[in-house]
C-alpha cells in the first residue's frame, strides 16, 4: 500500500505541477460548463441538471483519452518504464497508483463544477439526490474511461496512437449504449447478442445512476469494467517484462 501511495504522490505531482494539466483542465471545464449550461439557465425552466450531466459521456470520451494517453506511452518513450520496473513495486501497485492519480485529478475537475448545482439550488428547488448520484456516476464512468485509456496507452510507445486507439474503443463502447445503435444492431444480430453488446457499454449504466437511482448492478458493472481493463493493462506490462 505504501508503494502505491508513493506512486500516487509522484503522479499527482506530475499532474499539478505541469502547465499542460491546467491547460487540459481549463479546456475540459470550459467545454463541460459551456455545453452543459446551454439549456440550463432558462428563465422559469425546470431546476434540473439532466442536460448538464447528459453531456458527460460524450465529453469524457473526447477528453479523457488525452489525459491517459501519456500514462504509459510517455514512460516508454522516455525509457522511464524500465526504471520504474526495477523499483520494488509490483505492476499492480504501479497501475493502481497511476489509475487513482488520474481519477483524483478528474475528481478535482468535477469538484470545480459543483458551483453549478449550488447556483441552480439557489434559484430553484433542486432535488439533490439525483445530483449527487450523477456526480458518483460521473466518477465511476471516468474511472472506466481512464482504465480503457491506460490500457490503450500501454499498447503503444506513441501517444497519438494511444489517443486514437482509446478514442475508437471508447466511441464504440459509447455507441453500443445508445438506443438507436442498439435497435439497429437488433436487425443484424441475434437478440441475445445485441443485448450482450448493449450491456457492455458504460453509457447505459451511467444514465441509470445519474437519474438518481443507486443500483448495485451498475456499481458492480463499473468495478468489473475497470478491473478487467486494469488487469489487461497488467498483462501487457508483464508481457513487456517477459519479452524484455
Amino acid at each position: 500500500m505504501h508503494e502505491m501511495v508513493v506512486i500516487l504522490r509522484r503522479e499527482l505531482k506530475s499532474y499539478f505541477l505541469s502547465p499542460i494539466a491546467y491547460v487540459f483542465g481549463g479546456l475540459f471545464l470550459a467545454a463541460m460548463m459551456y455545453f452543459g449550461t446551454d439549456r440550463l439557465f432558462t428563465p422559469r425552466g425546470p431546476a434540473r441538471l439532466d442536460s448538464f450531466f447528459g453531456n458527460f459521456p460524450f465529453l469524457f470520451l473526447l477528453f479523457l483519452p488525452a489525459l491517459t494517453m501519456r500514462l504509459w506511452a510517455e514512460e516508454r518513450k522516455q525509457g522511464t518504464l524500465e526504471l520504474l520496473m526495477t523499483f520494488p513495486v509490483t505492476v499492480a501497485q504501479l497501475i493502481a497508483g497511476k489509475f487513482v492519480a488520474a481519477l483524483s485529478f478528474l475528481a478535482v475537475l468535477l469538484l470545480l463544477t459543483f458551483g453549478l448545482p449550488v447556483t441552480i439550488g439557489m434559484f430553484g428547488e433542486l432535488d439533490w439526490g439525483p445530483v449527487l448520484c450523477a456526480y458518483l456516476a460521473a466518477l465511476l464512468m471516468s474511472g472506466a474511461y481512464i482504465a480503457v485509456g491506460m490500457f490503450c496507452s500501454s499498447l503503444s510507445r506513441d501517444q497519438i496512437i494511444a489517443l486514437l486507439v482509446a478514442l475508437i474503443v471508447l466511441l464504440a463502447l459509447y455507441l453500443l449504449g445508445t438506443p438507436m445503435v442498439l435497435v439497429n444492431l437488433g436487425g443484424y444480430l441475434p437478440e441475445w447478442m445485441a443485448a450482450i453488446l448493449g450491456g457492455l457499454s458504460p453509457y447505459a449504466y451511467f444514465s441509470s445512476i445519474a437519474r438518481g437511482v443507486f443500483d448495485t448492478r451498475d456499481f458492480i458493472y463499473y468495478l468489473c469494467f475497470c478491473g478487467f481493463f486494469l488487469y489487461a493493462n497488467a498483462l501487457v506490462l508483464n508481457g513487456r517484462r517477459v519479452r524484455g
Partner: peptide, 10 residues
C-alpha cells in the same frame, strides 16, 4: 440479485 436505492425525493 440487486439492491437499489431510489434517491429522488419523490
Amino acid at each position: 440479485y440487486r439492491a437499489r436505492v431510489d434517491l429522488t425525493s419523490d
